[in-house]
């Protein structure tokens, strides 16, 4: 594996344990998603890989080389799109991308060629000579992505790359993320956008309170849920209790909704059950659809009220 993280722990001086024994491995050509709530420890992890933070314990290796011992090498081997906006006010996107490419050691003419291709691919041509101070947040994030992609390192880390980006350009951006991997980079993608991650990553890990609580392919994780379908119930505001699932799988509450895992062969039974709840007045409406990664995510780290007993329940049911 190209990027190998083992038993990584980071405890801040304030005593906060932001990463707690994280182990991950990401290969060449792989897009790996790191999912989790705000404060789950995702950015702390990325900042350690790129050498901005020093781990309390554990190791980070790229191509077998120790990144904790040599943060200068880590910065050369990783390109990075930070969660914060890039400091490019006063520069045009063209200047910003060119400067970053050259700072990463690529020759100017080659950088210019790649910049033109990226600006086309992300449909940024209309803004390429505008002062970044006048650009919208979404366009600036795309420029920040292009800065990370113009001369990519062996590992490319993208921290919430699609924030504020419009839906059309998001698709363009995901295509470029895949292109980076196709050219041999290991892409570590940090996001809390589960729906996008499901479509875009090869594998993912879900982080909660500094720990990896699940890891696998999107399909594999959905399989662990034990339900091919999800029944979403919208509760009546006056309903006093959450309906108990008749399928041996838990009902996970999220706000005024309840997600119920349903085995494929119980689809008819699920609809009948939901209809009866609707007639009884405890449910306003319901939908039945294929289970998504979001269901896994919600089951694992969903509403605070769903944890931690809920997590055990879901996976106990899966194992059963």
């Amino acid at each position: 594996m190209l990027l190998q993280i083992e038993e990584l722990t980071k405890v801040y001086r304030t005593g906060v344990r932001a990463n707690d024994g994280i182990s991950l491995a990401i290969g060449e050509g792989e897009v790996f998603g790191l999912l989790g709530h705000n404060g789950a420890g995702k950015t702390t992890l990325v900042n350690q890989v790129v050498g901005l933070l020093k781990p309390t314990s554990g190791s980070i290796r790229i191509d077998g080389r120790d990144m904790v011992a040599d943060p200068g090498l880590a910065r050369r081997l990783c390109s990075f799109q930070a969660q914060a906006q890039v400091p490019i006010d006063g520069l045009t996107p063209r200047q910003a991308i060119d400067l970053l490419g050259q700072l990463r050691g690529t020759a100017r003419t080659e950088v210019e060629r790649r910049r033109e291709r990226l600006i086309d691919a992300l449909d940024l041509g209309a803004w390429q000579d505008e002062d970044a101070a006048r650009l919208s947040g979404g366009v600036k994030r795309l420029v920040a992505f292009a800065m990370a992609a113009v001369a990519p390192g062996r590992v490319v880390m993208l921290d919430e790359p699609t924030n504020d980006v419009d839906p059309v350009r998001r698709r363009l951006l995901w295509r470029q993320v895949r292109t980076l991997a196709d050219h041999g980079a290991a892409v570590l993608l940090v996001t809390h956008n589960v729906i996008e991650a499901e479509r875009s990553v090869d594998r993912l890990a879900i982080l909660d309170e500094g720990r990896v609580i699940a890891e696998g392919t999107p399909a594999g994780l959905k399989g662990r849920l034990g339900a091919a379908l999800r029944l979403e119930l919208v509760l009546d505001p006056d309903a006093s209790e959450i309906p108990a699932s008749p399928f041996g799988l838990s009902a996970v509450p999220v706000g005024n909704r309840v997600m119920v895992g349903v085995p494929m062969d119980a689809a008819g039974q699920a609809v009948a059950w939901a209809e009866s709840l609707k007639h009884a007045g405890s449910v306003e409406e319901f939908t039945l659809g294929p289970a998504t990664l979001e269901d896994v995510y919600v089951a694992l780290v969903g509403g605070a009220e769903a944890r931690p007993a809920q997590v055990e329940e879901v996976f106990d049911a899966t194992a059963a």
């Binding site: 910065r75 914060a84 400091p87 700072l103």
Partner: peptide, 17 residues
């Protein structure tokens, strides 16, 4: 300000001495 908004950290993450 640059420290508070995170842009200094970004500059520190660049592969430059």
């Amino acid at each position: 300000e640059q420290k508070a908004e995170g842009s200094l950290a970004y500059m520190r993450s660049l592969p430059v001495p």
